[in-house]
């Protein structure tokens, strides 16, 4: 059997442990899918696979147990999904009948966001789609996820880019009844950014993470949400076999355009510094090698910053290193 592995992989089919069998990965940008596409997924799984589908952690579908020879046929069948989920949002796909044009930059995941969730500060699916059309198709391995608030249900902290929704609390003192619902809640659940002084609420801007809890708790609408939506961005979180770690804060109070531009600028950074001797190198490892400073200089280059934006001066990535974990012993 002769197949070009690289072409297959870039077409969103993977090499599986069973010789001759592949699996197709279907992207669902923002994790929200019109149910009519289940018909297509079902058709492929029933006719070419084994009648089952795996729901991936990145909110896609992986249809296993497919013979390589059916790839061209399946690519024609999957076309309406590509048209609806990619082409229609502005993703540039030239040859629609040939299936997915890339698989490196992974599906952009999103929590359910403010379409449903009471905590979410923005429409995460909408944001994921906005990012998708700027970064896809691309062969570089980048993981991005959008989460509505710092609860981070999508686990944005384990991505290369985690986008977290923020709102800037607006305090109308004339409506405040000094009940301290916001103050008590912020102390218990958040960062104690709010304090109570002379029967009014004082917000410590340095401590505030823009989660919106105070606006949720206020029974009179004295603490409300800003009309402008902001984002904090955490970067270079990962799992993996060397140094699993949570993503670290990179920007806060960023506007949507700034976030998208930073992600776009990451691709020339990767292109410049990637270790081409490896099959692939994740962006986090590149940042580790060349340093945060270089990353920052390149990704912020040419961006029109919004006034509120703050960027991390330095980042001390944590996590643990498997190779340094030598303190294990047999239990007594």
């Amino acid at each position: 059997m002769s197949i070009n592995r690289k072409i297959i992989t870039k077409n969103a089919y993977r090499i599986t442990k069973e010789r001759g069998k592949t699996a197709l990965r279907v992207r669902v940008p923002g994790g929200h899918l019109p149910v009519r596409h289940f018909e297509t997924i079902k058709l492929i799984a029933d006719k070419y696979g084994n009648g089952s589908v795996h729901i991936t952690t990145r909110q896609g579908f992986e249809i296993p147990d497919i013979d390589f020879k059916y790839i061209p046929e399946i690519n024609k069948i999957i076309r309406p999904v590509l048209e609806d989920l990619e082409l229609s949002i502005g993703v540039d796909i030239v040859e629609l009948h040939k299936g997915y044009p890339a698989a490196g930059t992974r599906n952009i995941a999103a929590c359910i966001g403010n379409r449903v969730c009471p905590f979410a500060n923005y429409d995460t699916t909408d944001m994921a789609i906005s990012i998708e059309k700027e970064v896809f198709p691309n062969h570089y391995h980048v993981k991005i996820a959008c989460t509505g608030c710092p609860n981070d249900c999508i686990k944005a902290h384990s991505q290369d880019f985690g986008i977290i929704g923020m709102t800037e609390p607006q305090y109308d003192e004339s409506r405040c009844i000094s009940c301290q619902a916001c103050v008590k809640n912020c102390k218990k659940k958040v960062t104690e950014a709010l304090t109570f002084k002379n029967y009014s609420v004082v917000r410590d801007e340095k401590r505030c993470i823009g989660c919106g809890e105070c606006a949720m708790k206020c029974p009179v609408g004295a603490m409300t949400r800003s009309s402008k939506k902001y984002f904090s961005v955490v970067i270079m979180g990962r799992t993996g076999k060397k140094n699993p770690r949570l993503a670290m804060p990179f920007m806060k109070w960023a506007e949507k355009d700034v976030v998208i531009q930073v992600i776009k600028n990451t691709y020339p950074f990767i292109d410049k510094y990637i270790d081409k001797s490896l099959v692939k190198e994740h962006v986090g490892y590149i940042v580790d090698r060349v340093g945060y400073k270089k990353f920052k200089d390149i990704v912020l280059d040419g961006i029109e910053f919004n006034d509120e934006l703050e960027v991390a001066e330095s980042i001390n990535f944590g996590g643990y290193w498997y190779e340094r974990n030598n303190c294990f012993e047999k239990p007594v």
Binding site: P118, N121, Q170, M216, G221
Partner: peptide, 15 residues
């Protein structure tokens, strides 16, 4: 419609 969002984002408040 009030010029602000209170409890939830993208939810109109009539007051």
């Amino acid at each position: 419609l009030m010029p602000f969002e209170t409890r939830h984002s993208a939810q109109e408040v009539v007051g």
